[in-house]
Simulated assay, not measured.
Amino acid sequence: MIPIPQPALALNSSDFSTASHYTMEHEVVVRRIIRPESIIDMVSGAAGSGRLRAVIINAHGMAGPDGVALGTGLHLGNVHLWGAVHGLIDRIWLCACQVADTPDGQSLCQSLAVATGAEVVASSDPQSVGGADREFAFDWNWRLARVPPMQIDDFEGHVMLWNAEGEVRDYDPNVPGPGAQ
């Protein structure tokens, strides 16, 4: 499990059952009809007059265009809209399959980092939640949670981190210590 510093916002896709949702200080279920501008308003509202330590985007990866199936989609054609929350987020975790597996997917991650001024973490590999990722825990509303509150499950495969300037490096978020956040 990867501990997530708070305050954080989990943007959980309605495509996933609530057993696959992450529990953070702020959390929202995002339905497929929600446009990017509304999602950005959710981020801004959760930040309030401060900063979010993390935004967790928990959705399917998508192809054609490469991106993330959160709401009506996050892709190169609309990533610039995230500039509206520039400086409000420390790190964005793209918990989705194969977001960074193509040049366009990697450009999306880089553009998201530059637009928001946040670090962006994504994998080029499929993501899964196996038995080791499941723990008995309750969230803030006393619902049985698959992943304990304030944590996300480990990333699989090749993981990369883009800094706020858009520079990329390999990253292992599954190892506690310096660099993991």
Rank of each mutant, 00 (worst) to 15 (best):
D101V: 03
D101I: 03
P103T: 07
P103G: 05
P103E: 09
D104N: 14
D104P: 04
G105P: 02
G105K: 02
G105E: 08
G105N: 07
G105H: 01
Q106P: 05
Q106H: 04
Q106W: 02
S107Y: 13
S107N: 15
L108Y: 05
L108G: 06
C109L: 08
C109R: 11
C109F: 01
S111D: 10
S111E: 11
S111R: 15
L112Q: 07
L112V: 03
A113L: 13
A113H: 09
A113G: 02
V114H: 03
A115P: 03
T116C: 02
T116V: 14
G117Y: 05
G117S: 02
A118W: 00
E119H: 04
E119T: 09
V120R: 12
V120D: 11
V120A: 15
V120M: 14
V121H: 00
V121L: 09
A122I: 01
S124A: 15
S124R: 10
S124T: 12
D125R: 07
D125V: 00
D125F: 06
D125P: 07
P126M: 08
P126D: 15
P126H: 03
Q127A: 03
Q127I: 09
Q127G: 03
Q127N: 08
Q127R: 02
S128E: 14
S128H: 06
S128A: 14
V129C: 12
V129S: 15
G130R: 12
G130Y: 03
G130F: 09
G131R: 14
G131W: 12
G131K: 11
A132V: 11
A132T: 10
D133R: 05
D133Y: 01
D133Q: 05
D133E: 11
R134Q: 06
E135A: 14
E135S: 13
A137Q: 04
F138P: 06
F138C: 08
D139E: 13
D139L: 07
W140F: 04
W140G: 13
W140S: 14
W140H: 10
N141E: 14
N141C: 02
W142V: 00
R143V: 01
L144D: 06
A145L: 03
R146I: 02
R146S: 15
R146H: 09
R146P: 05
V147C: 11
V147N: 02
V147Q: 12
P148A: 11
P148E: 12
P149R: 10
P149A: 12
Q151A: 15
Q151V: 07
Q151K: 12
Q151N: 15
I152Y: 01
I152A: 02
D153I: 05
D153G: 08
F155M: 09
F155D: 05
F155C: 14
E156I: 08
E156Q: 13
E156M: 10
E156G: 08
E156H: 05
H158C: 02
H158G: 01
V159I: 11
V159S: 00
M160I: 04
L161A: 04
W162T: 01
N163S: 06
N163E: 01
N163G: 00
N163P: 10
A164P: 10
A164M: 06
A164R: 09
E165L: 12
E167C: 13
E167G: 04
V168D: 03
V168T: 09
V168G: 00
